[in-house]
Amino acid sequence: MTGVTGALGAVLQVAVIAVGSPYLVGAMRQVRARLEGRAGPDVAQPWRDLRKLLRKESLTPHGTSEVFRLTPAVLVASTVLVAAVAPFLTTASPLDPVADLFAVVALLTLGTVALALAGIDTGTAFGGMGASREMTITALVEPTLLVAIFALSVPVGSTNLGAIVNSTLHDPARVVSPVSLLAAVALAVAIIAETGRLPVDNPSTHLELTMVHEAMVLEYAGPDLALVEWASAMRLTVFLGLLANLFAPWGIATGSGLAGLVLAVIVFAVKVGLLGLLLAVGEVFLAKLRLFRVPELLAGSFLLALLAVAASFFLA
């Protein structure tokens, strides 16, 4: 029984994230606009942009190779795979043993690498600059991510996502323990850096000096650009979903029938929505850090992760 609902849950997960993520981005833009006193486009605007882009003709910038053409596909595929594997709606999905937390992080890094290579492949200064900065940030984020995962896995004894979520479910007191709090903050900072949100990189600007993520996708147009935009929205949702479920897993279906799944979808949407809004509100008040101040931020988050591990050893 659980096999079927588990599989159904996995498919549902992919569907929810695929459809929901543009709406999340739309909602975040709506909140920012409201706070900045603007009317701003409504929540469904991102979907309309995607539909518009899909209708345009696809272009191949002069001198680029298959790497440039395949990158959007790799981005989307890796994000969808993570969406399928990770326990967003149900912890009993058959795909759980396929990948644990390290593998999930590595898959997302694979996406970033593909994007960086595409940036270099264009051969423009922007592409190279974006790729170089993106790689620097990724290299510095890795230690924080992995040590934070290390902190999470110590009380559980395993790095499998399902196991972590289940154990947090069974032992809610652990959520407020210092280990989880420190790990949560460290992971939050890492996620902001990884998805290119404000303090590290401003997603909505095209100013040469500051843009990192945008620089790499500058040459994309038409359907490819649509895929890239969609993939980055999905990545944001996946990251926020992970953050939510690892530290506040209540409401996730533990494999008992359809009702549980429907409830899980609603609860998941609410949690991710809340986190998104929180991020948007935060972004309004934060200015972009200079690129070479980012390592200090990441060093701080690394320190928090290390403290989390130490706490888990000495307190456990």
Partner: peptide, 11 residues
């Protein structure tokens, strides 16, 4: 159009 049009890089 079967093939993708070759466009100039943004310079």
């Amino acid at each position: 159009r079967p093939t993708r049009r070759d466009a100039r890089l943004w310079d």
